[in-house]
Design a binder for these strands. Structure first.
Length: 889
RNA sequence: GGGCGAUUGGCUCAGUUGGUUAGAGCGCCACAUUCACAUUGUGGAGACCAUAGGUUCGAGUCCUAUAUCGCCCACCA
């Protein structure tokens, strides 16, 4: 069979992916007799495009799924996308903006129509890209968090929680994004450091306007909403002022001086302006002291009419103007540089505004309880383990979850209001926003108010937090299919990134227990973040993105997969440069060429035997036994590595086995006798099995080659994972072979050092140091002749007189070169002296260790024995070296 | 303020429960091309394992500080 000398991924990848899919290999079925294995994909946003984080995340999942499929499980990888409320709405709004439109111009229904249209058109981009990656997802089950059935579940869950009084409506300070104009949960408003200023502002006393209380603030623009100044009750400086009144500058309102232990007397001036509607701390004080809540901003963070002259200014513009005005009035005492941190919208990075508003919340403490237990008891395990602490810390300090969003794209709250009931309630609370009368929570819009019978009913405008649907993902994806749920739930492993632990992982665990009564998964593997070579996150704005699709285009999917896996250790962050992908590409090519070589030399008739039968009946020679042993040892290592989520270790084991042992040594050794039956069988079987083990890592190249090999079955993808043949593994032999390689390497080294030209063959004598070495040399004489390019090899018996000059010694043998003329005596002498020196140091170390009574007494016996042995060995080597030196001089 | 991670050849990283002379890939140097593969082969150079203490017969590995970098959490006006 003629194959090109290079592996071309472009010609194979799409072909095989299509083949697998058409064969239905990706599909998993709950009626199977097999044991289930299930992973639910962290649903990428519909707005998403594949980045390296996805590539890593999904490669790991695909490895696990393919592996377990081969191991005989009914393996399901449940795919889907997330509607990504704010992100998608932003994208659709942007596209509208190009037409000069705002969403309000369209109205809610039209806008949502538009959003769906967008989703239909672009929402499957990421799915297509996941396929390029080779992901073996069960596409028949593709889900979307706004599918009809899924949405139904979301609504039901809301009602269930509401009825359990775990969902409530209330007015609190929440994180408000003025740009997206919606509330956000705490997790969606991460705090970032900012370089700001601390402004010291004088507030005049009412009874004596020439005297001031100076407050320190980072946000002067909110002063217009101040309703008090607070001091610590123990603060002597202010004690006599407590209860007195101040005139709030610029607003010319009277505000009270209150005492509260929350105030830190050491910070600033020890006096704090209190703005209950714009600061969470102040909110608490406001509640405690019965202060007024004055919101001074519009939802877009422009100042509102409570801000008087500053009305309609943006909050930061207002800050500047207010500072100017204060300065003019002589009320700005000083400005200090000050580091602070502020919440930022995780979607648009706008600084969030702590904003007082009425929202819906989930009471989290009761949900957290079983989720904490499960992790503490080890029913759910994090890998690496350290994330357990992070998880528990968050869970144990969990805050209620704000779930209402003031956007249009998402699951609308199943909440309706009766206008009539609300009107009636108004008498108690003048602002419609602040009362709870007339709330109806229902799956569908009620015909009339169950309270008063009015038909004047309208639905809440808000939608739910996107994560309120994703936290149901491990079971909501099965919809109402009880059999599937019973079979596949709880799922097996969750593979995800650290930044999503609180958003998603923790909440899924809570939802699993609350709604299913069972944990959603057993293991959580948290992989690292993919960064650029300088350790920065990859982002568009930094321009440091490495596009996985480009890598696929240039290097191939298998190269991408293999490279990224081989550098991802144990959840450590990955520093990536494009160069890394050469390793994967070269490896694919190496496999390709080794296979090409084998195919060119393969007699298909000879290899149709069963390998087990073969080595039961026929005694294996050293080399074939060795490579089989190494293969199975590697397999053991790979199994173990994957079990402990050390994917890089598995990948690297496969890499070095194939390249350095199978190709560099094994194939080179058997090359001259490649037609021998035993060589035919073993080289073929090892290759075939190796391809299977590698398949989860590099699915395409392995399939392409496997199909060209004689094979049974349709696809490598559905072939069983090889069984470890314990009886073939011979650690002793593996070690011995290293001796042989050591000898060959030493001869090659010698050739190189004395500059024997490439093909020039030299005669050599060799004196083996041990019986093992002697046997190996005898059994592999041909191999040594070939690999070390020797004309002749004489193996010296004990006491035999060597013919040449001693030229080199290695651990296992002395090597005598038969024509001494080639040797640079001075150089060799120097080299030997150097070796002698090193060895003497080693011996000194060993001797002193062995003389140390403590060591002999306390160290394990085998360690002491080993030490003695190696000392003896070193002494022998020294003797030989000294002999060499005397011969040379 | 608290927590976590990292610090090992020029670069990027491995390094199992402490055990003898610390590994890999890339890069570098030399040699090799009618040989499956130059996306190759062969050989080589290159590391007092961040610093300072400690535990131990023995520390890259365990402990305590320190430094630098990074991440996360917290009601830092």
């Amino acid at each position: 069979m003629e194959l090109p000398a290079r592996y071309n991924p472009k010609e194979t990848e799409d072909k095989w992916y299509k083949f697998w899919e058409e064969k239905g290999y990706f599909h998993a079925c709950s009626t199977s007799e097999k044991k289930p294995f299930c992973i639910v994909i962290p649903p990428p946003n519909v707005t998403g495009i594949l980045h390296m984080g996805h590539a890593l995340n999904n490669t790991i999942q695909d490895i696990l799924v393919r592996l377990h499929r081969m191991k005989g499980k009914e393996a399901l990888w449940m795919p889907g996308t997330d509607h990504a409320g704010i992100a998608t709405q932003n994208v659709v709004e942007k596209s509208l903006a190009k037409e000069g439109l705002k969403r309000q111009d369209l109205g809610r229904d039209k806008f949502i129509e538009r959003a769906w249209l967008w989703k239909e058109q672009y929402g499957s981009t990421i799915i297509r890209q996941l396929r390029k990656l080779g992901s073996s997802c069960d596409w028949e089950r593709l889900r979307f968090t706004m599918d009809e059935e899924y949405s139904k579940t979301v609504t039901e869950i809301f009602i269930r929680l509401y009825e359990k009084k775990l969902i409530y409506q209330g007015s609190y300070i929440i994180n408000w994004c003025p740009r997206c104009q919606t509330a956000l949960s705490d997790e969606e408003a991460p705090h970032n450091e900012l370089q700001g200023s601390l402004y010291y502002i004088k507030y005049p006393l009412k009874h004596n306007p020439d005297e001031f209380v100076v407050v320190a603030t980072t946000r002067p623009e909110t002063m217009l909403g101040d309703t008090a100044v607070a001091v610590n009750p123990k603060d002597k400086r202010y004690k006599k002022l407590i209860g007195k009144h101040l005139i709030l500058p610029l607003a010319n309102r009277e505000i009270r001086i209150i005492a509260d232990a929350l105030v830190d007397p050491k910070f600033g001036t020890g006096a704090v302006k209190v703005t209950p509607a714009h600061d969470p701390n102040d909110y608490i004080m406001g509640k405690k002291h019965g202060l007024d809540f004055i919101s001074v901003m519009h939802p877009d963070a422009r100042m509102n009419s409570f801000a008087g002259d500053y009305k309609d200014m943006d909050r930061f513009e207002a800050r500047e103007v207010i500072l100017e005005d204060l300065k003019e009035k002589g009320l700005l005492e000083k400005i200090e540089a000050h580091q602070l941190s502020a919440g930022h919208c995780y979607r648009c990075h706008t600084i969030i505004e702590p904003y007082f508003s009425k929202q819906w919340f989930v009471k989290m403490k009761p949900l957290a309880k079983p989720a904490i237990e499960a992790v503490k008891k080890g029913k759910i395990k994090f890998h690496p383990q350290r994330w357990t602490k992070v998880y528990l810390h968050w869970m144990e300090n969990i805050q209620d979850w704000c779930i209402s969003r003031q956007i249009w794209w998402g699951h609308r709250l199943p909440v309706y209001y009766c206008r009539k009931c609300a009107e009636n309630g108004k008498s108690k609370s003048p602002n419609l926003k602040f009362h709870n009368e007339g709330v109806i929570v229902s799956k569908i819009k009620p015909q009339k108010c169950p309270q008063c019978g009015s038909i004047d009913i309208y639905q809440d405008e808000d939608v739910l937090d996107t994560w309120f649907s994703s936290w149901l993902w491990p079971f909501a994806t099965f919809g109402s299919n009880e059999e599937d749920l019973k079979y596949f739930y709880p799922t097996s492993v969750l593979v995800t990134a650290p930044e999503i632990i609180f958003f998603w992982v923790a909440r899924m665990i809570m939802a699993g227990f609350e709604f299913m009564g069972k944990q959603p998964f057993k293991d959580v593997y948290i992989h690292g973040t993919v960064r650029d070579i300088e350790g920065r996150k990859m982002s568009k704005s930094l321009g440091n993105i490495i596009d996985p699709l480009e890598i696929i285009d240039n290097y191939g999917t298998d190269a991408l997969r293999f490279s990224i896996i081989s550098i991802t250790s144990q959840g450590q962050d990955v520093f990536l440069s494009e160069q890394r992908f050469e390793q994967g590409r070269n490896f694919a090519n190496k496999i390709w060429n080794a296979s090409r070589f084998i195919l060119m030399n393969l007699d298909p008739v000879q290899v149709t035997v069963d390998l087990c039968e073969f080595y039961k009946k026929e005694e294996l020679d050293i080399v074939n036994h060795w490579i089989l042993s190494r293969f199975y040892s590697t397999l053991v290592g790979v199994d173990k590595a994957i079990e402990s989520f050390k994917f890089n270790e598995a990948a690297n084991l496969l890499y070095s086995f194939f390249w350095h042992e199978f190709c560099d040594w094994y194939l080179e050794i058997i090359k001259p006798d490649i037609n021998l039956r035993k060589n035919q069988i073993v080289m073929f079987k090892v290759l075939e099995k190796f391809l299977r083990v590698l398949h989860p890592f590099m699915p395409f190249v392995t399939e392409e080659i496997w199909q060209k090999l004689p094979h049974g079955g349709e696809s490598i993808m559905v072939r069983p994972w090889p069984h470890v043949q314990e009886q073939i593994i011979d650690k002793r032999l593996e070690k011995d072979m290293v001796v042989l390689f050591d000898i060959i390497t030493s001869i090659r080294n010698l050739r190189s050092e004395i500059e024997i030209k490439g093909e020039q063959k030299v005669p050599l004598s060799i004196y083996p140091h041990s019986k093992v070495a002697a046997n190996l040399i005898a059994a592999n004489k041909e191999a040594i002749l070939n690999l070390a390019k020797l004309e002749r090899l004489d193996v010296l018996a004990h006491n035999a007189k060597p013919k040449g000059t001693i030229s080199s010694i290695c651990e296992s043998a002395d090597i005598y070169l038969s024509f001494s003329g080639l040797i640079d005596i001075a150089k060799e002498l120097q080299k030997s002296m150097q070796k002698l020196d090193n060895l003497k140091k080693v011996i000194t170390g060993k001797e002193s260790r062995l003389k140390n009574a403590e060591f002999v007494k306390k160290a394990p016996k085998d360690v002491v024995e080993k030490e003695k042995e190696s000392l003896l060995e070193a002494h022998n080597t020294i003797k030989r070296l000294e002999r060499t030196i005397s011969e040379l001089s």
